[in-house]
Write a protein that binds this DNA or RNA. Sequence first.
DNA 1: ATTTTAATTAAATGAACATTCATTTATATT
DNA 2: AATATAAATGAATGTTCATTTAATTAAAAT
Lengths: 227, 227
Amino acid sequence: MGSTLIFAFMRTRDENKIEAIYREALKMLVNEGFDGFSIQKLAKVAGVSPATIYIYFSDKEDLLLQLHKREMDKYFGYVMKDFDPEMDFATGLAHQWKRRAEYVIRHSDEAHFMENFRFTPLLPKAAKMRDPRFSEMMKRFVTKAIRNKELVTMPFEVYWSVAFSPLYNLVRFHKAGMSLTGEKFELTDEMLTQTLSLVLKALKPGDEEPVPEITCINTSLKHPDTK
Amino acid sequence: MGSTLIFAFMRTRDENKIEAIYREALKMLVNEGFDGFSIQKLAKVAGVSPATIYIYFSDKEDLLLQLHKREMDKYFGYVMKDFDPEMDFATGLAHQWKRRAEYVIRHSDEAHFMENFRFTPLLPKAAKMRDPRFSEMMKRFVTKAIRNKELVTMPFEVYWSVAFSPLYNLVRFHKAGMSLTGEKFELTDEMLTQTLSLVLKALKPGDEEPVPEITCINTSLKHPDTK
DNA sequence: ATTTTAATTAAATGAACATTCATTTATATT
DNA sequence: AATATAAATGAATGTTCATTTAATTAAAAT
């Protein structure tokens, strides 16, 4: 899709236009929500005709998917810069954490959009468009760390959830300017550093905490009463 | 708003209708997204006239806010049942964790809606409608645990993010049927139990892990280059 | 059965929606 | 300057949107 035949006689395309479309689309989605976003409004604020948008995108859904892919690629490009899966675990985790934190703090709209997208019915389609190299690298890093006994044995999804979702959640509070309680909240570098330290403690082998078993999936049919 | 004057001669209101409106609204929001949700479609599937919806809700935004409040109240009612902030930390955390996990697994649409709502421009308005008793109880529990040296000293928001966001993230993967990599994923009780154990390890005092300082907030102006 | 009232509705409103179409514009080569 | 081509558009399409209006319905006390 990205490569088009170049004929001898052509009007040159204005790359600023497509950039404006992406930029204003992101802004509108974050500020007005997925409802509240429309092609006609986008065309107006981006300074193009609605028809121009349909030159670059087959429809509204395609625009959203392309925008998502673009943001994901930018994000992972930043996160993976100078990362080497052969790093020892604590170093590699700190690197990932630092890069992720930097990006989502400095590009809070983009981060908000990417997270919001995960709750959209478009998610399955977006998942198929992802560059697999990033997650392959992540998985290699985790597998090696487990093999080297630097990381507790666990499924990749558990690792990811413990390692990174606290970070994203803190940034979400920060961007909203409030925590769950509705009180004002401002994130600090000290909080981020402490969170990384806690996460690393959780993931490093040793001192496993005994907890009561959680049973809610295999038993869901036996407990239909939730009132 | 909830209490209306009861006159002598009145047609009785059909509570099934309002229940159908809430139920179908939730379903539509989860399955078709916040765009894709409309009053006219809702009226059709709920089996009422669009005008009926405007008897109970002043407008679309009010409907969304009321639905959100209702779901939050149901959720926190379930989570807080049998919880006592005077419980010792490990017991209280396990209780909270278990109740949260049960609810969000068994009411995955409701959970999806509540999380999705956090990315909506309506969030600030919703925050003002929240029952403060829940977060007061949570804060009391955390403050006491820190005072008793059962919990590392940290801001409430850091506690919440480390303690619960991994759970919500795992359930999000589970509901989507895929992890970030796009691969199939099914959550198990064992994964949940392990995650709780890891979280408890992170939060209990002792063995603080040294990590490099994260600096991205106070230095954001000094590093405008993110390419 | 009548009365009173809120509950409920069908139908209508104008605005905004996604998308298309017929046309014009800009450009690199000739 | 003429030409071929994609880039870009303004205006229109029919649809769906949130919301309102005027009228009807149902219930419970009389």
